[in-house]
Design a protein around this nucleic acid. Structure first.
Lengths: 248, 248
DNA sequence: CGTAGCCTTGAGATGCATCAAGCATTGTGG
DNA sequence: CCACAATGCTTGATGCATCTCAAGGCTACG
């Protein structure tokens, strides 16, 4: 299985790509050495983005997708009254930029919440390779569709949950994503401020703070600044109604 | 340009496909007669769905995308407490089922709000043809990305607008879509109930009703049951803040 | 040590949900 | 053709969740 491919180090793959939503792209099962090389050549493997830096802005011409290798991003839109809406947070292995395909320009700002690394996937090359390599094509479609589903979930959350439930849903969602990454699902550190959480969930910062307090008082979680411990994960999950899936 | 192709009637195309989000699929610019025939063979061109009927249900195995030819649909999820969330309304030329790719099953129920016709686009065939026909591939990606952007807009709406603004945004959005279809952008009939509007916008039916009333009192719109007239379209638009785009 | 950013908490205001009643329209069976 | 049920819509009164405004505390960092 481990064919000798120039410039490809399986150890690096293990760390970086194994949880990536596009791993089929970088090291798909059944990919030939030849194909792998071709992929390797077009992906820029580690562009650093430091905390607070903008990876791309709303309206920038769309050129590439970005896969988060390490770190965390927020995607946001600013309304002209100066208010921020955070459309999502991106953890390692997740993609940025899918909204750019629609109108050949990005529809959000992508901002690093901590020092991060991204893979750069030039889009036209990606489309070209996808044509020659059906599993990759299908994987790309799945990734886009998952983003659609994720956003549906957020819409449902915004349309039907109360403040405390929204915050609980966010925590459960982050928990699942950290588990998938092989990190602790019960102990993690929030990379975003209360305000960013509020701007994602459609709540004011004070309401977010009080929601944390209430969940904490019920013994469901333990909160210390940005450090979170899920004490009663199941109860937390149940407090949402199982229909609300939390994929993002 | 009008090559003689068996089974293809340009007049029918004009009526049906010219505003379709997948028109590149059915009659792309620059498509050869050969390719067109191939497309023609795999698309089922007019499946009727009568009012209230379900086109597909949450969890049904994903097989096909559907393009609305005539009529209107709602896409919805039911939470287990029995509450409905309407993720969107689909007008002629718009697509249903993109969420199904992600997990090989549909993520919503698609229900006709009036007697409707859809085109059926079997998905595996679509992927296959897209590989051989780059403009179609790109168009498919654009359509998926537009759905992502549309949902981002709805999320922003839900997270930041007040009741009256949400209703105004819906009306402006419908207006634009009817204009694109060649219908009046200022006079149209709502195909959905107040309750469905509320379940889309995260509002109760009474609140929707009162929002209509207020917009009406301000002279921005005229409402008679489901008949809507946009009297001051610009003012209505301005009442939203221009950053809130309303694509669906 | 001091400042700036972030977070918490309290008190009061407000927008939407809830509860309740009544009206309009449509369709149906007598 | 009419009576009346069913469905959808409106309107009013009240309560509650969240926002708003205000103050103070904590932490990190220069």
């Amino acid at each position: 299985m481990t064919t000798a491919v120039p410039g490809f180090d399986p150890k690096v793959f293990k760390e970086i790509c194994s949880t990536c939503s596009l791993r089929e792209l970088c090291v798909p099962g059944g990919i030939t050495a030849d194909e792998l090389e071709r992929l390797d050549n077009f992906v820029e493997r580690r562009r650093p983005v430091s905390r607070g830096e903008t990876l791309y802005r709303t309206g920038d011409p769309f050129r590439a997708l970005y896969a988060v290798r390490s770190g965390t991003f927020k995607a946001r839109v600013m309304s002209d009254n100066g208010r921020e809406h955070v459309t999502g947070f991106q953890l390692p292995g997740e993609l940025l930029g899918l909204d750019g395909v629609a109108y050949d320009k990005y529809g959000v700002d992508a901002i690093a919440l901590e020092d991060s690394l991204v893979c750069v996937l030039p889009y036209t090359a990606l489309e070209r390779i996808a044509r020659d390599f059906p599993p990759l094509q299908h994987q790309l479609h799945k990734v886009m569709s998952r983003e659609i589903v994720r956003e549906q979930d957020v819409m449902t959350l915004l349309a039907s949950l109360r403040a405390e439930e929204r915050v609980a849903a966010l925590l459960v969602g982050l928990s699942e994503r950290y588990r998938r990454l092989g990190y602790s699902a019960t102990n993690f550190v929030l990379r975003m401020t209360r305000e960013e959480i509020g701007n994602h969930l459609g709540l004011k910062i004070e309401t977010v703070s009080r929601a944390f307090r209430k969940l904490s008082d019920q013994g469901l979680v333990r909160i210390d600044g940005r450090k979170v411990e899920l004490v009663e994960e199941d109860a937390l999950r149940r407090s949402l109604g199982t229909a609300v899936v939390t994929r993002g």
